[in-house]
Simulated scan of single mutants.
Amino acid sequence: MSTTEYTKVYYGNFILAIRIKEELEHVGIIPIIKDEGESQRLAGYASLNQGIQEIFVHNDELETAKAIVTRVEAEMESAS
């Protein structure tokens, strides 16, 4: 069984990922951003995941991060 100290809190488009990252950093949470599409592009492969990112946070900050992600997603949804 694999254990990790980080949990994914977001999977989606680049623009919303950047907004979430900024909000997390504002409260002192340093997220890890994973961009498979960019990694594949840099390696010379085509990617179907272009513009899709994943955000991971340390498990100690998980509850705060989840609340921020939920709030930012709701704000973006109501703005559209």
Rank of each mutant, 00 (worst) to 15 (best):
F14Y: 04
A65F: 04
A79Y: 09
F56Q: 00
N13D: 14
A74S: 15
N59D: 14
A17W: 05
R71K: 15
I32Y: 02
E36S: 03
A43M: 11
A65Y: 06
S80Q: 14
L48A: 06
S2G: 11
G37Q: 04
E22S: 09
S39G: 04
T4Q: 08
R41K: 14
Q50P: 00
E63C: 11
L16P: 00
I30S: 11
Q40V: 12
V69D: 09
V57Y: 03
N13E: 08
E77N: 10
Q50Y: 12
T7K: 10
I29D: 03
K34E: 02
E38S: 05
I33R: 01
R71S: 12
A79N: 00
V9W: 08
S39I: 13
M1I: 10
A65L: 00
D60Y: 02
S80Y: 15
Q53P: 06
A67T: 02
D35S: 05
Y6N: 05
I15S: 09
M76D: 15
K66R: 12
L42Q: 13
E73Y: 10
G37V: 11
G51Y: 10
L48C: 10
G37C: 09
R71W: 12
E73Q: 14
D60I: 03
H26Y: 14
E75R: 03
E63L: 08
L24G: 01
S80K: 12
H26L: 15
A65M: 05
A65H: 02
S2R: 06
K21I: 02
G28M: 09
I18L: 06
H58C: 07
Y45K: 10
E61Y: 15
I68P: 11
L24A: 02
E22F: 04
S39F: 15
T7N: 13
R71M: 12
T64I: 15
R41E: 10
I20Y: 05
I32Q: 05
Q53I: 00
A46D: 12
S78T: 14
D35G: 00
I20W: 05
E75Q: 13
E77M: 13
Y11P: 00
V72Q: 11
K21T: 14
F14M: 00
P31D: 00
E36L: 06
E5K: 11
M76F: 15
Y10R: 00
L62C: 13
L62F: 15
L62K: 12
A79D: 07
A46V: 09
L48I: 09
